[in-house]
């Protein structure tokens, strides 16, 4: 084993253990206020242009924040709170697009795009590999000669 390999194994081991520790250990418990804030960032204020309930200082937004805190206090789930707010204020207060019907396309299309791009890259590289080295044509040689002649004059 070379020294470099050992160094690499060490780096990977250190990174992996830090990663696993951070992923498994939950750290300080999440408070109700943290949950309420995280949720209110994903709910749009019904009367403001493009601001979430967390951002807006409008009265409706403030009232929704209070309702969210109350629901969380009562032990309701995020999904329940979301659907309550959707039925009270309309579907467009929920910033998370649903996965049904036409709306699901917003989730699917990027995946299709990514898969298509990846497939395209694979095909292109395969073709490049198959083509092998290009032979210089007569025209190429003539071009090189012409450039050389010009450079020789300089």
């Amino acid at each position: 084993m070379t020294r470099r390999l050992l160094l690499w194994l060490g780096a990977v081991a250190v990174a992996l253990s830090a990663f696993l520790f951070a992923a498994v250990d939950e750290g300080a418990p999440r408070t109700d206020a943290d949950r309420a804030y995280a949720l209110s960032k994903t709910i749009g204020c019904p009367v403001c242009d493009g601001q979430s309930v967390a951002e807006s200082n409008a009265t409706v937004a403030r009232n929704i924040r209070i309702s969210i805190a109350k629901w969380i206090d009562e032990g309701q789930s995020d999904d329940f709170i979301r659907s309550e707010l959707r039925s009270n204020f309309g579907d467009d207060v929920d910033y998370t697009p649903s996965g049904d019907g036409v709306t699901s396309l917003v989730w699917i299309l990027p995946v299709v795009f990514g898969a298509g791009a990846l497939a395209g890259l694979v095909i292109v590289f395969r073709r490049w590999k198959r083509e092998g080295d290009l032979e210089a044509s007569e025209a190429d040689r003539a071009l090189v000669e012409a450039v050389r002649a010009v450079e020789a004059d300089d």
């Binding site: 309309g90 579907d91 207060v93 929920d94 910033y95 998370t96 697009p97 036409v102 396309l105 917003v106």
Partner: peptide, 19 residues
């Protein structure tokens, strides 16, 4: 996307930070 959905079936939806 909200514009597209509204044009297709008149639903009003939002696509925001979670997405």
């Amino acid at each position: 996307f909200p514009l597209i959905v509204e044009a297709i079936n008149d639903d009003r939806i939002s696509v925001g930070n979670p997405y």
